[in-house]
Design a protein around this nucleic acid. Structure first.
Lengths: 258, 258
DNA sequence: CGTTAAGTTGATCCTGCTCAAGGTCGGTGG
DNA sequence: CCACCGACCTTGAGCAGGATCAACTTAACG
């Protein structure tokens, strides 16, 4: 299970297919253009402050958002007020493509940081797909990558210990975020989350996340303090997280449909 | 939170778009035809016995399967041998559309019952999409519905108690399976799972699932014994599962792209 | 009717939760 | 520059939901 730290820093072949800069699938600026014809249907931009909802649970769900700048997360709220964070969406992500039409959304999306996204109405999608088949296929691919990530989170939350879950989430976010800064081989990054965010994403309480982070610090693996993350021992982190290098590779995969 | 049992039996507008019979999105026989042009690229059928793998973890992932008959599940295996069941795939489901190409699968698929599926190589997908845009959009929609289900499972495993998780899973499977037998308003069904399957899907041990099922039986809610499920008190089940009727509706949604 | 996989139950343990009380950071207004 | 405030982090003590281990029973199937 021990993996060379090289794997953590291997530069996967992910670049924006339009401008050739590195990105999480699509670079922030080109995303609307790569979704090509879609950009013509774009109706405008939204700007949100940290903590505001891009859309809430039970809304119409007739808009697709393309995040240009900032982080967001998808979430679910239960009857008792508990929150499950489903996914962290980074710049370039497409958010809001729902399986139901005319029905209401079953999850919400909230800005973690101040955020800019462009808005595309879902209504024209059928026409767009007819004229530009590659757009639909790309949408399928993006969605399928989200699905894989969700399966991955489910496995972590369902089967791993608290320490493994936290390590897993942090490593995932580190790898995904680092892809946006090509060549930036630093071990330090701004991770704009509270311990409660981490708890809600891993199915733990904020209090317990705090204890886990202390352990990880005492073991000399990572330091996470007030939204600054520092990775001390990458190999140990990969090891604790129980990450298959195969898996990490899939996080940084480029679409085969371009 | 109490919901009329009518909601459990509302006949959602889901029918096979080809033959107009009820189904889980696509009816078993028509699925390959509805994916229209894809059926021409179909290379054959596979027949599996219960317990055999449709594909394993770390395989090539260059095939798409369309389940015609039988149940399967997608799963992940961890380093210590623990298994997480990610999704139960019913007849009509499309399985094996992976986000990576040239890379290896990060999860496996196994037959729960004896199973028949038709096989479509992934290689021709780009051409198919070019010629038949609606196929790609339909694929995106199917994938997005899977993603929603995964989010739903994640929420359940991350935030609910053992009893809630088990109730949630059973209710989901009951609703999804019942859609395949239109008009079949029975409270009893064949649910081809062991208690260990339920445990692996909910992040519990088989032993604890057994205790939970005993509680649910003693509370007069459901009976599940050797793969026969009987729902005694639908309202109470919906209540315990913490299911939003909205959510149940989305499980039985028809694609808007047909 | 024997074999095997699956279900059942009890006793005990431990991981992570709850409740509660400080402590620390960063921003804001004087 | 400093005082203040609210959000967030930190730590402790006690509790409990679900895991583990182990023995035994029941159902299904040839």
């Amino acid at each position: 299970m021990a993996v060379s730290s090289k794997s953590l820093y291997s530069e996967a072949s992910t670049e924006c297919s339009s401008c050739k800069r590195r990105s999480d699938g699509l670079c922030a600026e080109c995303a609307p253009h790569v979704l090509d014809a879609i950009s013509r249907y774009k109706t405008g931009d939204v700007h949100l402050r940290a903590g505001e909802d891009l859309f809430g649970i039970g809304e119409a769900g007739d808009l697709i958002f393309n995040i240009a700048e900032g982080w967001a997360f998808l979430y679910n709220i239960l009857g008792n007020g508990d929150r499950q964070i489903l996914h962290f969406a980074l710049p370039g992500a497409v958010v809001g493509f729902h399986p139901t039409q005319g029905a209401l959304t079953t999850f919400g999306a909230q800005a973690v940081t101040d955020l800019t996204a462009c808005v595309i109405p879902m209504a024209g999608l059928k026409d767009i797909a007819r004229k530009h088949p590659e757009v639909a296929l790309r949408l399928a691919w993006l969605t399928s990558r989200d699905r894989s990530l969700a399966y991955d989170h489910l496995t972590s939350v369902g089967q791993q210990t608290a320490q493994e879950r936290v390590a897993h989430l942090i490593l995932e976010l580190f790898i995904r975020a680092r892809l946006q800064w090509p060549g930036h081989r630093t071990d330090e990054m701004h991770l704009p989350l509270t311990q409660e965010h981490i708890g809600d994403a891993t199915g733990l309480t904020g209090v317990h996340v705090n204890r886990v982070l202390r352990n990880l610090r005492e073991e000399g693996i990572i330091e996470f303090h007030y939204r600054r993350l520092k990775i001390i021992d990458p190999d140990a982190l990969v090891d604790v997280a129980g990450i298959d290098p195969q898996l990490a590779y899939s996080w940084s995969q480029k679409s085969p449909f371009e």
